[in-house]
Design a protein around this nucleic acid. Structure first.
Lengths: 179, 179
DNA sequence: CCTTGAACTTGCGAATTCCGTAGCTCTGTC
DNA sequence: GACAGAGCTACGGAATTCGCAAGTTCAAGG
């Protein structure tokens, strides 16, 4: 189902851009402003990361070259990455866990330290009864045990941890915006 | 840095496959068996989801056509998906949270119900003080509140929930295997 | 032993896609 | 108003993808 161009360019292309549409750019808090067209491009690539630029262009109302430039910029800026994702369990990693971490002192420096560990696939600072939540991917129980008890707890500032070992992954999506 | 072929085919191609390498196939629990070559292909695509088949073939020691067939099969089987991923915060979703859920009765049916909700991006059954962990992506505080208090808690079997609102995403990787 | 099927290779042409670049327009700045 | 930069379109050549056919190897089954 090919949806119509998102940035509706009825007659004159300029019509759609005359409004005070936010331009893409970096705001003072470091987060990116993305206009509707870039969002539409991302949506296309969330459906299929290998979709040709020309097809995306048709869907969002841009030329192939423009899409290519936008995608390249989104990748360069780190706003988006195009990757293969799998369920780690099917790829030989037998043990996964979410670990809640409580920190004394600077949370961000602890987060950085954890981010440097290859086994930590996902690190996020949170509000609530944990300061950090970390998802770790390991090959077996021994590996998991070592990472949690030896490595994570050894990081200066880590006060305590609580682990939630994964039993079964039920859902994994990358299609916000498509709903 | 072009790494050498992973499935080392020294002289005779058959050498690498004579061992009792597991063939690809489905086992009785429904999980996939992936041989070393398929894993290597996935690794390549975890680094760059748009990498050309010929380049992948060179890296893993297969022909372009064979890589194409394998990738297609992996996609068809749902073992792997090639998609764009972003930090939802940069894409206009202002609020995210991890929610720990405790369940009375059948955990899996609750997990299924939560998986059906568009806002739940990630649903996993766990061992520990939560039965389920659910990541939700919302547009604002009102939306978040509604999802947690109205929708999730309304699911039959949900005994209690605890929320961890995201403050900052520090790391997000899809490169197990590449380490 | 023969057959069958799966998976791979090689080869090839056509269609498609990618990529660099030149030129145009708009916008903001000094 | 001139100038610079961002963003777009158009276009041509290079590279990739795609479909397909023929031949090979290997494992499993009769």
């Amino acid at each position: 189902m090919h949806s119509e161009p998102v940035a509706s360019r009825s007659a004159d292309p300029r019509d759609s851009r005359d409004a005070r549409e936010p331009r893409n750019g970096t705001s003072r808090n470091g987060t990116q402003h993305l206009d509707a067209v870039s969002l539409a491009i991302i949506e296309q690539l969330q459906e299929d990361g290998r979709r040709p630029y020309a097809a995306i262009g048709k869907a969002v109302g841009l030329s192939e070259a423009a899409v290519r430039q936008r995608v390249q910029k989104l990748l360069d800026q780190g706003v988006m990455q195009i990757v293969a994702v799998t369920d780690p369990l099917t790829v030989g990693f037998r043990r996964q866990a979410m670990v809640g971490v409580n920190v004394e002192g600077d949370v961000e420096s602890v987060a950085d330290a954890l981010s440097d560990m290859g086994e930590c696939e996902y690190v996020v600072m949170t509000a609530g009864s944990f300061d950090l939540m970390v998802e770790i991917v390991c090959e077996d129980d021994d590996h998991l045990l070592e990472v949690i008890n030896k490595r994570i707890r050894a990081v200066p500032g880590v006060r305590s941890t609580e682990s939630f070992v994964y039993l079964k992954l039920k859902k994994q999506t990358y299609m916000w915006g498509t709903r």
